[in-house]
Simulated scan of single mutants.
Amino acid sequence: MGCAGQASPCPIQQVRDAFPYGRRQHEALDALLDEITNGVVQPLAPADHDHERWTAWGQEHFGRSWYDVPFLWAESYFYRRLLGAVGYFGTGPWQRADPFAPFKQAELRGDAVEEELQALDALASVPAEERATALLHASLWGNRADLGFRVSAGEPAVADAAVPVLVSDDSATLWQLLPAGTSATVAVVADNAGRELIPDLVLIDHLLAHGHAERVVLHVKPYPYYVSDAMTADVVDSLRRLIEASGEAGRIGGRLWKAMAAGSLEVRTHPFFCAPLPYEEMPEDLRKECAGATLTILKGDLNYRRLVGDRLWHPTVPFAERTAYFPRAVAAFRTLKSDVIVGLEQGTLDSLQRSVAAWRTSGTHALIQVRP
Rank of each mutant, 00 (worst) to 15 (best):
S8C: 05
V15L: 08
R16V: 10
Y21G: 12
G22P: 01
R24C: 12
H26R: 15
I36H: 05
T37D: 12
T37L: 14
N38M: 06
N38P: 08
N38T: 15
G39T: 09
V41P: 11
V41S: 09
P43C: 08
P46R: 04
P46N: 07
D50V: 11
E52T: 07
W54C: 13
T55L: 13
W57E: 02
G58E: 10
G58D: 08
H61K: 07
F62V: 12
G63W: 07
G63L: 03
S65T: 13
F71S: 12
L72M: 15
L72R: 14
W73P: 02
R80N: 05
A85C: 10
A85Q: 01
V86I: 13
V86L: 00
Y88D: 01
Y88Q: 06
F89M: 10
P99Q: 04
K104H: 06
A106W: 12
L108C: 12
L108W: 04
R109S: 14
D111N: 13
Q118W: 09
Q118Y: 10
Q118I: 14
A119G: 10
A122T: 09
A122F: 09
E129R: 15
A138K: 10
D146C: 11
D146W: 14
R150V: 12
P156E: 05
A162S: 15
S168E: 07
S168K: 13
S171K: 00
S171M: 06
A172W: 02
L177H: 11
L178N: 02
A180Q: 06
G181S: 08
G181K: 11
T182R: 08
E196T: 00
E196N: 01
H206C: 08
H212D: 14
H212R: 15
R215S: 05
R215L: 11
V216P: 03
K221H: 08
P222V: 00
V227A: 14
S228C: 04
A233W: 03
S238T: 02
G247P: 08
G254H: 01
A259V: 00
A259M: 04
M260C: 02
A261C: 07
S264Y: 05
L265Y: 01
T269Q: 11
C274A: 15
L286I: 09
D301M: 04
L302V: 15
Y304W: 09
L312M: 05
F319C: 05
R322W: 03
R328Q: 13
R334E: 04
K337Y: 00
V340R: 13
V340E: 13
I341F: 02
G347P: 12
L349P: 12
S351G: 08
L352G: 11
W359C: 01
G363A: 03
T364V: 01
V370W: 11
V370S: 02
R371W: 04
